[in-house]
Write a protein that binds this DNA or RNA. Sequence first.
DNA 1: AATAACACCTGTGTGC
DNA 2: TGCACACAGGTGTTAT
Length: 271
Amino acid sequence: MPELPEVEVTRQGISPYLVEQQVTALVVRNSSLRWPVPDIAQQIVGQTIRDVRRRAKYLLIDTDAGTTIVHLGMSGSLRVLPRNTPVEKHDHIDLELANGRILRFNDPRRFGAWLWCELPEAAHPLLSKLGPEPLEECFNASYLIQALSNKKRAIKLCLMDNQVVVGVGNIYANEALFSSGIHPQATANKLDKDRLTLLVAEVKQVLAQAIKQGGTTLKDFTNADGKPGYFAQTLNVYGRGGESCHHCGNLLSEIKLGQRTTVFCGICQTR
DNA sequence: AATAACACCTGTGTGC
DNA sequence: TGCACACAGGTGTTAT
């Protein structure tokens, strides 16, 4: 479900219900996520949520005592619900609030994470080595040229490498490369400045557009209010292997790159 | 150091 | 209808 736009849409959706609210309980029904969910009820109950931030695809729920770090993995979702909402399958965690609502974490595949960090989260091992945020100014052409200078892998793999830039998953890597006219298998350090300048712009554009449209709903993504995203209607290549290119009509090719399905137009995307 | 493969897990769709 | 299999939005860990 979630790439950066979906995580950001989730953040925007839950934040108003959380900020300035006191935590009244933490209920962990299944602590078997990607890493064991720590029992931090003692630390967090009674705390007031100060902010809900995002770094890469991690959501950071701040209190004065520490920060809850949430990752949605492949299939996770967060909803704000009335406290008495019946528990459904894969509803693993509830964070109960003084306003009578709960933040409920559901994750069928359990690749997600719910962690606790008392230090500045930048020091956390999961966050300390992350590259720049794609929508911030520090992600620009000169940065990318430098970051790719020793990379002989395919550009798509680099785009999905969190040390190069965070938040670009399989959907938006495919889309940004199509929009830039760059072949996904192009060797990263052979792309010239003009190409990379365009790529940076298209990464920003495709992510910003997806956030604006509420994210991409493929199967069951909904925001915190239960509304789907509409970006799927905008996809040019993702999930369209064998169909015709929106730009030239050529049939879109489908290959595997780093075990991930990669779709591109052999005519529009040249090396 | 960079790169590639593997691991975690459930649900869904396809083909027999 | 049942079954085996491939595949899915991610990413840390291990092996090459």
